[in-house]
Each structure stands twice: as C-alpha cells, then as structure tokens.
Amino acid sequence: MGTRGTTVRRRGGSVPLPLVVPAALGLLFLVLPLAGLLVRAPWTTLPQRLTEPGVLTALRLSLQTATLATLLCLILGVPLAWLLARVPFPGRRVVRALVTVPLVLPPVVGGVALLLVFGRRGIVGGWLDSAFGITLPFTTTGVVLAEAFVAMPFLVIAVEGALRGADTRYEEAAATLGAGRWTTFTHVTLPLVAPGIAAGAVLCWARALGEFGATITFAGNFPGRTQTMPLAVYLALETDLQAAIVLSLILLAVSVTILASLRDKWIASP
C-alpha cells in the first residue's frame, strides 16, 4: 500500500487528458443544473413563498411518507436481505433477481402494477376493501406503499452486501455461547452490520423522498393527502415556474442537509 501510494504521488503530474476532460465535463454536467436552480431562484420573494401553506403541507407529507416508507422497507427488507445472505435455499438467485426488478422498472409501470394488485378491484386490494373496508390507492398509505416499492431494493442490496461482508464467525461464537439464530441475529448480526443498514436506509429514504412516477400513478395528486414535493414541483411547473424553482430548492436543501448529517452521524463512524 505504502509503496503504491508513493508511486501514485510521483506520477501525479501526468494524469492523462482523455480522462481529465470527460471527468471535468461529467462533474459540470452534474453540478450545473443545481447551480441553475440557485441562479434562477426568486431570492427576494423567497421568505414569503416558503411560508405558503401548500408548500409546507407538501414538504411535511413528503418527509412523513418517505420516513414511513423507509421504516416499512427496514421491517421487511432487513429480514429479506438476511435470508438472501445467510440461508441457502433453492431459487435464491431468482429471488435476488426479483428483488432488484423495481430498480430497473420504470416507476410508472410500478405504479400501474401496484394499482392492479392493491387497487379497489385488484387481487389484494379488492379483498382488503370487502373484508376490512381498507382502500389503499389515492391515499397517504398508498404514497407510502408506492415509495416503499420503488425504494426497497436499495435497502435490500445494501444490507445484503453488508451481511455478506460481515464475519460469520462472530455468529458461530454467539452459538457456542448458547445463542439461537434469532438471538444471534438481534444481538450480534444486527449490531455488526448497523453501518450497512444505516447506509441502506439513507439511500432508501432519499429514493423515497424523490419518488414521482409510482406515486402519481398509484396515489394520485391530491394536495394534503398524496401530493408530495416532487408532485408539487411538477404541478407548479405548469402554472408558476417561480414556485417550481422554490419547491425544488427546498427539496434539494432538505435532502442534502439530512443526508449530510446522517453521513456524519452513522456512516462515517464504523
């Protein structure tokens, strides 16, 4: 490692241009739109626009649903990741592939699929409606479901990676001390992979916060009930560009602040 480090430093002067130019362009491409937001923001009317009731409602709904969706993903996704990482069962590769499908699926398609299953005439939704009177589509719960559907693969993949990387001999040591598999999971495995779970939860939360396609398809766009920030941005874009910019800025600021603070608190310290 040490000798390699010095080699790199000695050759530091000659970074090849074919790498530097696209790298710089790539960075510019990522940063420029964000800078555009800042430049075009109506700074003078900003305080007044921020306090508009619609903005705060959408923001609160976004934060609530993204957090609930992350909790749902944690409750269902961590055991799923454990199963994929620790229990060799037939068809495990297929299951692992299935878990990642929502990653590549266009979110709108995900929303349609959710509607077909959890809609009032859907397989599960119809039964929920007739048996319990529970309706999921076009409700806040529907927003949480849509966000969880899209965001869960991020959590499962991150946690499964952490579990695979964790030393299973600690679990063997726990077994020799009399711990069954459940106690070992709660008392040894979970604390060992906590940083990985935190990282996965942050990714999951960020994805849920930005979710648009599945939400608008499955939950609709009702202010105060299902209209999250991305939906509000989209709606504002058609009527009031300034409002759309303000909403985007808020979304950007909130997600960057929360991600940055979580990173310091959870991910940096192993």
């Binding site: 030393d167 001999r169 600690y170 040591a173 020799t176 001390l177 604390p191 060992l192």
Partner: peptide, 12 residues
C-alpha cells in the same frame, strides 16, 4: 465453551 484463535470478541 470455545476460545477461538482470534478470540472473536463482539466488537460492539
């Protein structure tokens, strides 16, 4: 009871 080669004390 087992004493493992690299002890495997639970780090947390």
């Amino acid at each position: 009871g087992v004493v493992f080669q690299d002890y495997l004390l639970f780090p947390h």
